[in-house]
Amino acid sequence: MLNLLVIDGVLLFLVTITALAVIEMRNLFAVTMLTGVYSLLMAAVWTNMHAVDVAFTEAAVGAGISTILILGTLVHVGVKERRREKSLNLSALLIVTLTGGALIYGTLDMPAFGDPEAPVQTHRFQKLFDQNVGKVPVTDTHHVEAVAHGAEQHGGEQHGAHEDEFHGHVYNTVTSLLADYRSFDTMFETAVILSAGLSMIMLLRRRSDEEIEAATQRTERVDPDTIKTERMDPKTTQTVRVDSPPGSDSSGADKKLAAEIAEAVDSAEQIQHDAPEETDKGDQV
C-alpha cells in the first residue's frame, strides 16, 4: 500500500504544481500544452486509483480533444494574455480560501480515504457490483403507493423484484453500470455531446453553402445582416424583409444601402458617444 500511496502523493503534487502553472503562465500556447500535461497526469492519478475507464477518457479527451479545441481557438484569438490585473487578486483569493475552507471543513467528518466501511462502499454497492439487482416486473412499475418507501420496509428490496441471473455477464462493471443500470444518464450524456456539436455549428458556421457560392460571385461582399437588422430606417427594413430574403440577391442597390446604413450607424454611434447616459445600463460585472 505504501508504495502506491507514495506514487499517488507524488502524482498529486505534480498535478497541483501543473494546475498552478496553468493559471499563472501568460503565454496561452504554453498554457494549452500544460493543460494537456495536466490531463495526462490526472489520467495517471486515476489509473493509480484504478479508475481505468475514467483515466482512458481523460487521456483521450483532456489531452487530445481539449488541446486541439484550445489550439484551434488560439488560432483565432492569439496567444498572448495581456497583463492588466495585479499579480494577486485579493478578493478572489478570499473567496477561494473561504470556499476551500468550507469544503475541507466538510471533509473532516467524512469516512477516511479508502475506508471499506464507508457508506458508499456498503450501501447498495454489492448488488450493483455483482450485477444481481433483479428487475421489477413491468406490471408493478406504475403502482402508486409503496414504491417510494417500500425499500427499507421490504428488506432493502422493492417488493416483487426478481432475483436476476444476469450474474457476472459483463466483466467490466463500469460498463454494466454505464450502459445498463444508469443507461438513462448515459443517453443524456450523449445528448449533451450532440448539443455541444450543434451549438458549435450554430455559433461558428460562417455561411451556408449557397451563401458562400453567392458571395464568391459578387465583386464586393455585402453583409446580408446589415440590411436586415439596421434600425435607422424602418421603411427599408420592411421592404427588404418582404421582398428579398438575405443572401438571395446581389445588386448595386445592396451596396448603396450598405453604405447608407454604415453612415447611419456611424451617426448613431456618434450620438451615443456624446451622450453616454442614454446608453443601456445593463449590469456589468
Binding site: 475507464d53 475514467v54 479527451v61 450493483l128 463500469v174 453500470l177 444518464d185 450524456e189 455531446i193
Partner: peptide, 19 residues
C-alpha cells in the same frame, strides 16, 4: 474491488465538461 459507481458518474461529467 473499488466502487464503480463514481467512475460511471465521472465519465458522464468529463463528457459534460468538454462540452
Amino acid at each position: 474491488y473499488d466502487n464503480p459507481l463514481p467512475h460511471v458518474l465521472m465519465l458522464t461529467a468529463i463528457v459534460v465538461s468538454v462540452s
